[in-house]
Write a protein that binds this DNA or RNA. Sequence first.
DNA 1: CTATTAATTTAGAATTATTATAATTCTAAA
DNA 2: TTTAGAATTATAATAATTCTAAATTAATAG
Lengths: 143, 143
Amino acid sequence: MKPDSHKFTKEKRAGEGPALTRQRQVVLDVVQSGDTHPTAAEVFEAARGKMPGISFATVYNSLRFLKREGLVREVAFGGGASRYDRETDRHDHAICSACGTLVDFDLPGTVELIRSAARATRFKPESVHLTLVGLCPDCRECK
Amino acid sequence: MKPDSHKFTKEKRAGEGPALTRQRQVVLDVVQSGDTHPTAAEVFEAARGKMPGISFATVYNSLRFLKREGLVREVAFGGGASRYDRETDRHDHAICSACGTLVDFDLPGTVELIRSAARATRFKPESVHLTLVGLCPDCRECK
DNA sequence: CTATTAATTTAGAATTATTATAATTCTAAA
DNA sequence: TTTAGAATTATAATAATTCTAAATTAATAG
């Protein structure tokens, strides 16, 4: 954490893009602290702890903003709520079919993967998302 | 289409599981005809064409039933509505970031893929889902 | 420093997607 | 043809998310 990170707002404001406001900073802090992948509702809960009075709408707005700025990543599966990921670099996910735990990992060789997927589909590739579904180490034991 | 496919109901009924009723058959037909990946709402629209009076709830119930029976597959991305896929074997998806088109394809080497993903995560693997995001052949031209 | 303008936040309503409920209807078998 | 269980229907409920309008806050010009 840089010593002048609290000046970020002013710095950014003077010119192009919109600001990293206090509430957005709080939301970002929540997502970045801890390696869980919280839902918007969970982010709201935690954010309210740090800043009582913050609204649900602002959490959503902030998450959308932070996503656009590339500071957090949205991860959406199945029908449930989206989860937010502090890791913004390309990576893969594994989700436990028993407990729902979501973990990040990096599969080597995804560059070649994206290439062959593009070849097979004739798409101009932008990204690949790979998700492993299975039993997490904890759940595979407790059986 | 087998000549006795209309007897399916009776055949199945006599014994174990529940029936492939008329409305379920209609929903199945809708998903299986055409290679689009319709949402529940789209399935409802089309189903109502074949069977006016079918309810939205029944479409949802039928899709859930058909999914359990392994006759259709649910595909869920992002925040939007789930889409339903007539292709039930393991396969991959490519989604166009411009027009939303969703196409099926099969990437070779996914067996090895699932193995290395499992190795990296220590998960007991069940399935892998790979999605390529990019521009579909149509959209990559019209630029 | 103050007025003006623009962006952001808030609270709550609205929307969208989906599931649950309760009453009715259908189906298959006795 | 009665009956039991399953399925369907209409509707209500729920969950997740977005929108709206008013209030607040921040940035900029004077």
